[in-house]
Design a protein around this nucleic acid. Structure first.
Lengths: 333, 333
DNA sequence: CGATAACGTGCATACGTATGAACAAGGAGG
DNA sequence: CCTCCTTGTTCATACGTATGCACGTTATCG
């Protein structure tokens, strides 16, 4: 079986509580005792049991992170900084990769193995946030936000959508299309909203035949492109829900022999590292993924530690248009 | 504070142990009592505390999975199936993303928050496996294996390397190069070994100026290509340590204006989904990632549950060459 | 009808750690 | 010389669940 603090106590010739205090740096323990306990712990390879500690302190010092699908290249770039920032605050990250926020997710999250949660893939219609609130598990929205009020760290997605629309209009595009994210995500909805609004303000129509909706996945872009190009007139520019979708479009364009950007302008959103690959050189909307993740970590830590107990906070980061090689004036301009 | 089994017991008018038994499906509890307990638990939103359960049963029903870097597209494809298969066996996955198997990793892994571990990124010179063995934490090597004996699920990497060499030779290539993985990984080493052996058997030299080593990352391929092409004569074919490296090479080739496969044949290893994208159409060596992950999950579950207690097992999966569009006969053939 | 078995439930306790309170030993001050 | 404080340690117990064992009840059989 495992080594317990009792074993260490026996070897060091002290009581179990003294072992606990010595190793946790309680100032009431004498230096000499600390030395003896440390030595004994070392000799036995003692590692305190997290289960015991959690039970006793009623806190696990772990923060959950819920993402949907790690094979989507977007999420790993969020998870890394989250891990590091939580670590820096003395918390450990516990990653949950629920495909869907399925039945039972709330139960699994509230079994006291985490003190708080970062929701990175919440949908607007999800029942999970309300359920978490009811069960009093502190949580923070990251990237996407839901309808239940809670701390949130997001990008100004409307502004990003506007920036893209303005760029396209300024470049002379008049047949503009969009492959938007799911309606039940705040990111998908707001990017589309801002984009549509700015186009409308510029007096440019966005035809239904030039738009699609779909999950933020490679396949969405890949399958959408041929369908959109079948429209008459075909769009000369496409705004994609995020970079992963845009890269799917670029991949499909290659397959179809469509020249980008000569025949088609493609714009993404997020500026993940892959967007900068020579194979894609994707024009996109950049925001600071790392900063976003770090901020979310900070907020959730403040919640679980009780450092902050006030009203929900909403941190909004600013996006910026990044011009690369998938962006040009239209042939028929 | 949280709802405990005592609260449920009080509401249902039974004792705490009965609640435990009722919810865990102990056959000794009467149907009527089960019904009452269930109802009370439901009404209170009771979720059993994992910490309490772990402490009492001395097992967490959690399996750790240690990977280095999730932004490497290879790993998410391993993690997904692992998660599902562990789930199917009644275990939960706990993902650890240590950048390095740093000091203290062994301690964090042996704090009894996991019953066993899947090592997906072990290096040959790592001290971690030996340390885990000393601390008696069951573990399984996945994809890569180490020197400390333990269950392992791997690909026949030597055979894969041989297959690539034979293909290149059969296609008429004589100036062949390689961008191999790190020497301290079993995958890097074995693929290189098989490749070199088969070339030697065919009487074809592998010049030092045509080879490089580096981590299994995009950047490795991207930076290596120009250096290798500077050799005289330049290689007409390159075997890459894995797909991610090969995609880095393809990306660099695009930047340099090198035509693939007309001027350069590029071969990868793993057949991750991205290899099949139109943008790459990478010829590669396929093995069953999902099967590999599922098998590792099975082995580690057998270990922690005590179903299997015998000698270490080594499961070897067979690779198969997949011909796509980055593979042709050389111009100077 | 009494002995016995089968069934259902409660009691006591273990798991490993942390912590408030009690306590022992020693030193300072009156 | 007694009191009071300081310092370092131990005692007792809590945390929430699971489980061996004892116990009570009812059905079963001789």
């Amino acid at each position: 079986m495992g080594i317990t603090s009792r074993d260490v106590a026996r070897l060091a010739g002290v009581s179990q509580p003294t072992v606990s205090r010595a190793l946790r740096g309680d100032p009431r323990v004498s230096d000499e005792t600390v030395r003896r306990v440390r030595q004994a712990a070392e000799a036995l390879n003692y590692v305190p049991s997290e289960a015991g500690r959690s039970l006793s302190t009623r806190s696990s010092h772990r923060i959950g992170v819920l993402v949907s699908d790690l094979t989507n290249p977007f999420y790993p770039h969020l998870v890394g900084p989250l891990h590091d920032e939580l670590e820096a605050h003395g918390y450990r990250m516990m990653l949950f990769t629920e495909r869907s926020e399925a039945m039972g997710a709330a139960e699994r999250l509230t079994d006291h193995s985490i003190d708080g949660l970062v929701l990175a893939t919440s949908t607007l219609d999800s029942a999970l946030p309300a359920e978490l609130q009811r069960r009093e598990l502190p949580f923070v929205y990251l990237n996407r936000e839901g309808t239940t009020p809670a701390d949130a760290v997001v990008v100004d997605n409307r502004l990003g959508g506007e920036q893209v629309a303005n760029q396209l209009v300024a470049s002379g595009h008049r047949h503009i299309g969009g492959i938007f994210g799911p309606d039940n995500t705040s990111t998908g909805r707001d990017r589309e909203l801002g984009f549509r609004q700015a186009l409308a303000d510029a007096g440019i129509a966005l035809r239904p035949a030039h738009t699609k909706h779909g999950p933020f996945e490679f396949e969405t872009g890949r399958t959408a492109l041929p369908e959109l190009l079948a429209a008459d007139p075909a769009p000369t520019a496409l705004f994609c829900g995020n970079d992963v979708v845009a890269i799917g479009v670029l991949d499909a364009a290659r397959r179809l022999g469509v020249q980008v950007p000569a025949e088609l302008t493609v714009i993404g959103f997020d500026d993940i590292p892959m967007a900068a690959w020579t194979s894609f050189e994707l024009s996109t909307v950049r925001h600071d993924l790392h900063e976003m993740a770090r901020t979310a970590a900070r907020l959730v830590v403040e919640r679980v530690s009780g450092t902050y107990t006030g009203e929900p906070r909403r941190i909004v980061l600013s996006p910026r248009f990044i011009e690369r090689q998938t962006h040009a004036t239209p042939l028929d301009g």
